[in-house]
Amino acid sequence: MKKAITRRRMLQLTSGGVAAATLGTPSILRAQESYPDRPINIVVPFDTGGYNDRLARAFAPFLQEKLGQPLTVINRGGAGAMLGHTYFLQQPDDGYTILCTSAAPYIPLNILTQDATFTVEDFHMINLPSRDYTLMATSAGSDLTSADDVIARLKEDNSSLSIGIQPASADLVNLMLLCDANDISREGLRLVTYDGGGPTRNATAGGVVDIGLVGGEGFLPLAEQITPLIVFDTRQRDGWDAALITDVAGEDAEFVVGSQRGWGVHASMLENHPDRYEILAAAVEEASKNPAAIEALKNQQLATDWYGPEESNKSLAATARVMQQHVDLLQGT
């Protein structure tokens, strides 16, 4: 028996489908009242495999559990997170697109050096659990063994050491502040610029450059190949056996914290969807404090500490201010 679909039959099917769709719509609208009722996208403005990507993917299962909806990671890498940040702000502020990024230094850098169309106030950080710090290190086989060695050598001749560093970075600001504190001229330093933290660390560990200044957390896998020299923080981090910047440059040493990474939303979400914001912020807080999450992320050397929106935004704003002061350092090296 031949059963061809006639045009009439096709029309019936189509109109039936349209009718079903129309009937279905109100129920979708009704369900929207209970946020979230569909999957949520996490925008990561970096390529796969980086810290933010790993953080987003590792934390997602725990956040998903609290929100009751699946989370999808969308990588929008490129141009120092500028493209990803712009893309994120172009999405609706309805809480179905959230951000996992290195808010500092990248949001201020986009604004100060790349003529971004947004401002720091367009973003609202729910929590920035990861607070990286600059680590000055040298290759394990190097004849430099302490911060004092480095400073003595640079004081004698500031071009005597090659320094691996990323241009337009918190690390560069820290290096310059350290030089200022020790009366070392900024002019004539032998800076060797790398395109990312990974290449900078490889060059440092391999002794291609004499010293390197770069985010310290990423150095952990290479710990055996380096000698840590200065931790740019007020407390000892990750068990490095190194001098603190406060030991080297005094109690009131000026320095900037490194990358601050974590979870953000559109600032406008707080006004347009305050109820959803509450739900989301509570879910991030609960997931961050979940012992299973803490354990899982700790094993992957990822941070889950809960600082909360107030402190996270304050710290981001403070970093943005310091970077603004040193804007001349951030534009081209």
């Binding site: 796969t48 495999g49 993917r57 990974g198 055996e224 190949q225 050397q301």
Partner: peptide, 27 residues
């Protein structure tokens, strides 16, 4: 040997290592 990715593909492999709580590298 070093726990550092040479390119995108090995970065994914390292991420898979991390998902199983294994950190690549000399140790």
């Amino acid at each position: 040997a070093l726990g550092i990715p040479g390119g995108g593909a090995t970065a994914i492999l390292l991420a898979a290592f991390a998902m199983h709580n294994i950190v690549g590298g000399p140790s």
